[in-house]
Amino acid sequence: RLSAFYLQDGLTRIKFVEEIKQVVDKEFETARRAKTDEECIVCIKNLRAETDNLLEQERLLKTKSAQLYAKV
């Protein structure tokens, strides 16, 4: 949702979505290999933290407290 609204460049949008997908896939893989409930809970907390970070970034972009910059 964030990438579609804020990232106009298609390649940048794809890279952003892929990066988020990699984070999620890594946490799910770690959760699958977890041997204890505590290890699994850590993965869930990591995913929640990532979600919170993305929501905070969205808030900053909406309020114009942050801006998008491109490096060439």
Rank of each mutant, 00 (worst) to 15 (best):
L7H: 00
V23M: 14
A31M: 08
V42I: 09
A70E: 01
F16H: 05
I14P: 05
V23N: 08
D37I: 11
R48A: 13
L61A: 09
Q57M: 11
R32H: 12
E50V: 09
E27L: 00
V23F: 15
R59E: 03
C43H: 15
L55V: 13
A31L: 07
L2H: 04
I44Y: 14
K62F: 02
E29V: 12
I41W: 04
A4G: 02
R48Q: 11
E50I: 06
V42W: 05
D25S: 12
K45C: 00
K21N: 12
R59I: 09
E18W: 06
G10V: 10
R1N: 06
T51H: 03
G10Y: 02
V72L: 12
K15G: 10
T36I: 13
V72Y: 11
I14N: 15
Y69M: 07
I44D: 14
A70V: 01
R33L: 00
C43R: 12
T63H: 04
E58M: 07
Q22H: 12
R32W: 11
R59V: 02
L55T: 02
K71E: 09
L11Y: 13
Q67N: 12
E38T: 03
E56C: 06
F28K: 02
A66S: 14
I44V: 06
L60E: 01
E56Y: 02
I14Y: 13
F5N: 13
R59Q: 05
D37C: 12
A70F: 11
K15N: 14
K64M: 01
A66C: 13
E27H: 00
A31T: 01
E19K: 15
E38K: 04
E56N: 10
L47F: 11
K21M: 03
N53G: 11
F16T: 03
K64I: 00
T12Q: 09
E50Y: 05
K45N: 02
C40D: 13
E56R: 04
K15A: 07
E56V: 08
R48S: 09
T63R: 06
N53A: 07
L2G: 08
Q22C: 08
V23D: 07
Q57S: 05
R33C: 02
E58C: 04
S65F: 10
G10T: 08
V24G: 00
K45A: 03
A49I: 03
A34I: 15
E58F: 14
D9F: 04
T63K: 07
S65T: 07
C40T: 13
S3G: 12
V72E: 12
E19W: 14
T30E: 07
N46Y: 04
